[in-house]
Amino acid sequence: MDQENLSATLIVAAPAAKVFAVLADPTTHAAIDGTGWIQEPADRAPLTEAGQVFRMDMHHAKHPDGDYQVANKVQVLDPPRAISWLTGQEKEDGRLEFAGWFWRYDLAPLGPSETEVTLTYDWSAVPPPVRERIQFPPFDPEHLTNSLQHLAELVSGR
């Protein structure tokens, strides 16, 4: 695969502010996740600023530990238009280390009750040593579409 990102787009029957509020709430991320890897948030506070760190408890059968935790650092927080975060881990000494991939949601209002949502997973900044250990993307592309469908279902239920 030559490209270094994947994207999917879906029109959600909800205003952009409502969609953004769901995305900025870490307690919803397990329900949105299209891979099934996110278990629950370790940090439950809403995302309110760039630089904020929030952690998620994860499970992946192919991960050496099975259960693990990621630390996400908010890169973009532009309500109700965009939100993104880098995914990494916290080292034993408390340092955060990011391996170069990020998640981004772009929201385009299509009227008062519809929003076009684009989800992008980008691994273009992943260095060669990490690429030797992890195949990118680490999931099937349809997981992005699944995530957007879960988001739409979650937003419609609020």
Score class of each variant (00 low, 15 high):
residue 1 M to N: 12
residue 1 M to K: 12
residue 3 Q to H: 15
residue 3 Q to P: 08
residue 4 E to W: 09
residue 5 N to M: 15
residue 5 N to W: 08
residue 5 N to S: 15
residue 7 S to V: 09
residue 12 V to N: 01
residue 12 V to I: 05
residue 12 V to K: 00
residue 13 A to T: 11
residue 14 A to W: 00
residue 14 A to R: 01
residue 14 A to E: 03
residue 15 P to D: 14
residue 18 K to C: 03
residue 19 V to S: 01
residue 21 A to I: 06
residue 22 V to K: 00
residue 24 A to M: 14
residue 25 D to L: 08
residue 25 D to K: 05
residue 26 P to S: 00
residue 26 P to Y: 01
residue 27 T to H: 08
residue 27 T to E: 07
residue 27 T to K: 05
residue 28 T to V: 07
residue 31 A to D: 07
residue 34 G to F: 00
residue 34 G to S: 02
residue 35 T to S: 08
residue 37 W to F: 14
residue 40 E to S: 13
residue 41 P to K: 01
residue 42 A to C: 08
residue 42 A to V: 14
residue 43 D to N: 11
residue 44 R to F: 14
residue 44 R to C: 13
residue 47 L to P: 02
residue 47 L to W: 04
residue 48 T to S: 15
residue 49 E to L: 11
residue 51 G to Y: 13
residue 52 Q to V: 03
residue 53 V to M: 02
residue 55 R to G: 06
residue 55 R to H: 10
residue 56 M to Y: 04
residue 57 D to R: 05
residue 59 H to I: 07
residue 60 H to P: 06
residue 60 H to E: 11
residue 66 G to K: 07
residue 70 V to S: 05
residue 70 V to Q: 04
residue 71 A to I: 07
residue 71 A to C: 12
residue 71 A to S: 13
residue 74 V to K: 03
residue 76 V to G: 02
residue 76 V to H: 08
residue 77 L to R: 05
residue 78 D to G: 06
residue 80 P to A: 05
residue 82 A to R: 09
residue 84 S to N: 05
residue 86 L to F: 10
residue 86 L to M: 14
residue 86 L to V: 11
residue 86 L to A: 08
residue 88 G to F: 09
residue 89 Q to P: 05
residue 89 Q to K: 13
residue 91 K to G: 02
residue 91 K to P: 04
residue 92 E to P: 00
residue 94 G to L: 09
residue 97 E to C: 09
residue 99 A to G: 12
residue 99 A to T: 13
residue 99 A to E: 12
residue 100 G to D: 05
residue 102 F to D: 01
residue 103 W to L: 14
residue 104 R to K: 14
residue 105 Y to L: 07
residue 105 Y to R: 03
residue 105 Y to E: 02
residue 106 D to M: 10
residue 106 D to A: 09
residue 107 L to E: 02
residue 108 A to R: 02
residue 109 P to M: 12
residue 110 L to H: 04
residue 112 P to G: 15
residue 113 S to N: 12
residue 117 V to A: 02
residue 117 V to P: 01
residue 117 V to M: 02
residue 118 T to K: 01
residue 119 L to K: 01
residue 120 T to C: 13
residue 122 D to N: 04
residue 122 D to E: 03
residue 123 W to L: 03
residue 123 W to V: 02
residue 124 S to L: 06
residue 124 S to C: 06
residue 124 S to I: 08
residue 125 A to Q: 11
residue 126 V to Q: 01
residue 130 V to K: 01
residue 135 Q to G: 15
residue 138 P to S: 11
residue 138 P to K: 11
residue 139 F to Q: 01
residue 140 D to K: 13
residue 141 P to H: 09
residue 142 E to R: 08
residue 143 H to M: 09
residue 144 L to Y: 02
residue 145 T to I: 08
residue 145 T to R: 06
residue 146 N to K: 13
residue 147 S to P: 02
residue 150 H to L: 08
residue 151 L to R: 00
residue 151 L to Q: 03
residue 152 A to Y: 00
residue 153 E to H: 09
residue 153 E to S: 10
residue 153 E to N: 08
residue 156 S to F: 05
residue 157 G to D: 13
